Simulated assay, not measured.
Amino acid sequence: MQEKSSTPLQLSDLHLPDVPSWLPLAWGWWASIGAIVVVIIIVLLVVRWKRKRLAPKKTALRLLTPSLGLQTPSSAIELLRQAAFCYYPREQIAHLTGKDWYAFLDDQVGRPLFVPHETQWQQALYQKQSTVDSNVLIEDCYQWINDALPPKKRRSVNVGKH
């Protein structure tokens, strides 16, 4: 029998492959990064657009805050008209006065705020000493700006038509 040698075989050391690196990234990673960047840009643009669109409403509400008590009905309705000009086409509302103006305001809110108080508005707007409670009229302006601006798209409902 042969004798086993106690010396190990003369083998070379193991050569392990290099650790895979992150770069260059595979196309799937680039597509994911691109999609994330596009989504972030879209979100930022939407936020900026909303902020810009709501700026006139927020300014009008801040200026018309009922707790300040510095407004008169004539200045409140003027501020309401200026806020409406920011959202509605000038051709649609510039010519409206009196009953037509109040009807337009009520139509935008969907409930009567101004038409029932038309005589009170006329007294408050054109008399030096107002005999009506001006806080109620100013609160109606505040409520209209808060509810009607920015205008919402309305679907026409055909009642009773098939």
Rank of each mutant, 00 (worst) to 15 (best):
Q2V: 04
Q2H: 11
Q2G: 08
E3N: 13
E3Q: 11
K4M: 08
S6Y: 08
S6A: 12
T7R: 08
P8E: 04
L9N: 08
L14Y: 07
L14E: 09
P17Y: 01
P17R: 00
D18K: 04
D18Q: 05
D18I: 10
V19H: 01
W22L: 12
L23N: 09
P24T: 04
P24M: 03
L25S: 06
L25H: 07
W27I: 06
G28H: 06
W30S: 03
W30H: 08
A31N: 03
A31C: 07
A31V: 06
I33S: 02
G34V: 06
G34M: 05
A35M: 12
A35D: 02
A35R: 03
V37C: 12
V37S: 09
V38A: 13
V39H: 05
I40L: 11
I42F: 09
I42V: 12
L44K: 05
L45S: 06
V47E: 06
V47W: 05
W49H: 06
R51C: 03
K52Q: 13
L54A: 05
A55K: 10
P56E: 00
K57R: 13
K58L: 06
T59S: 11
T59A: 07
T59V: 09
L61D: 03
R62H: 12
R62A: 15
L64Y: 00
L64D: 02
L68K: 12
L68R: 09
L70K: 13
Q71A: 11
Q71M: 13
T72N: 04
A76S: 13
L79P: 01
L79H: 00
R81K: 10
Q82C: 04
A84Q: 01
Y88L: 10
Y88I: 01
R90L: 09
R90F: 08
Q92Y: 11
Q92H: 12
I93T: 08
I93Q: 03
I93E: 01
A94F: 02
A94H: 07
H95V: 02
G98A: 11
D100T: 06
W101C: 05
Y102S: 12
Y102I: 04
Y102F: 11
A103E: 13
A103C: 06
A103T: 11
D107Y: 00
Q108R: 10
Q108G: 00
V109G: 02
G110W: 02
R111K: 14
R111M: 11
L113P: 01
F114K: 03
V115D: 01
P116M: 07
H117R: 14
W121H: 02
Q122M: 09
Q122L: 10
A124W: 00
Y126E: 07
Y126N: 11
Q127H: 13
S130A: 14
S130Q: 09
T131W: 12
T131Y: 09
D133R: 14
D133T: 10
N135R: 12
L137Y: 04
E139A: 13
E139G: 08
E139C: 09
C141S: 07
C141R: 02
Y142S: 05
Q143S: 14
W144S: 01
I145C: 00
N146H: 15
N146D: 15
A148K: 00
L149A: 00
L149N: 01
P151F: 03
K152V: 05
K152T: 13
R155D: 15
S156I: 15
V157T: 15
N158Q: 12
V159D: 15
V159T: 13
V159A: 15
G160N: 14
K161L: 15
H162R: 15
